[in-house]
Design a protein around this nucleic acid. Sequence first.
DNA 1: AATGCGGGGCC
DNA 2: GGCCCAGCATT
Length: 333
Amino acid sequence: MKAWQEALLAWYRQNARLLPWRGEKDPYRILVSEVLLQQTRVEQAIPYYRRFLERFPTLKALREASLEEVLKVWQGAGYYRRAVNLHRLAQRVEELPPSFAELKGLPGLGPYTAAAVASIAFGERVAAVDGNVRRVLSRLFAQESPKEKELFALAQGLLPADVDPGTWNQALMELGAVVCLPKNPRCPNCPLAAFCQGKGDWGRYPLPRRRKAPEERLMALVLLGRKGVHLERLQGRFQGLYGVPLFPPEELSRREAAFGVRSFPLGEVRHALTHRRLLVEVRGALWPGEGEDPWKRPLPKLMEKVLRKALPLLAHEGVVSLPDAEAHGVKPL
DNA sequence: AATGCGGGGCC
DNA sequence: GGCCCAGCATT
């Protein structure tokens, strides 16, 4: 084993954060943690990890739950396909297969998550390359734009013999998460500083690829019926969750005609996604249908904003219960 | 290889 | 406001 590998492992033994899934043996619980951690910071994932496992403690419990129930627990965590895929996975297999190759075929498990579960839960010697590992290795070996395949081959070759692969993978990720940071890396505190070829100008490794999120204009139509708001199951973006009709502005007249209403403006809502800046004009109308209480459904954050903007309409005749809304963090204007 | 998919924290 | 996060699926 090389000196830098010893240094990393020694650092990890001393500095590993105490996280709920550290030391966990149950492969299912490790899987849940890894899926929740996809593109999600540790601090954000922890409460969902606890909530999810309290409600679905085993693969069997998850399998027997309804998708909507699963989404309700996932509400707020984002990337809702992860929840859908986890639910599908539970239907697909009785138990988690103990190998990287088999795990990688399951819904929602790509190369990273399959490798993470295989190495951490089952001890398989396979490298798990996430954004942290990519950044750490890019800097350590001064690689500006390493390709994914090369990076995996490199990481695979770096797995030390006689070290638990799950521990090694986590040590590399931990370093990236708390020392080898994207913006302000703490090189003076880094156990690998003496070995790092990219330390001088860390900004080059890896080279950031920039793109700015374009703006997208949409309209949201809040229809207030006798018993509440008209909700649809959303398609595409926010798939599986619920919300009011959301569409491009040019569809307004067609939508109004379909519902038999004339709408009026309630205000604008801005919502930033990673690759889009949404500018949503919220419109409302009284509608002869029934509708329902929206706060009982899994809603994306955008729809919470839309409904908050529509609060003056919702308060109309007290059809929608404001206490329910406030329980969801919605405050009157 | 590029794009869509959430939400939150940090600068 | 931009950037990034223990990525995956689709094209």
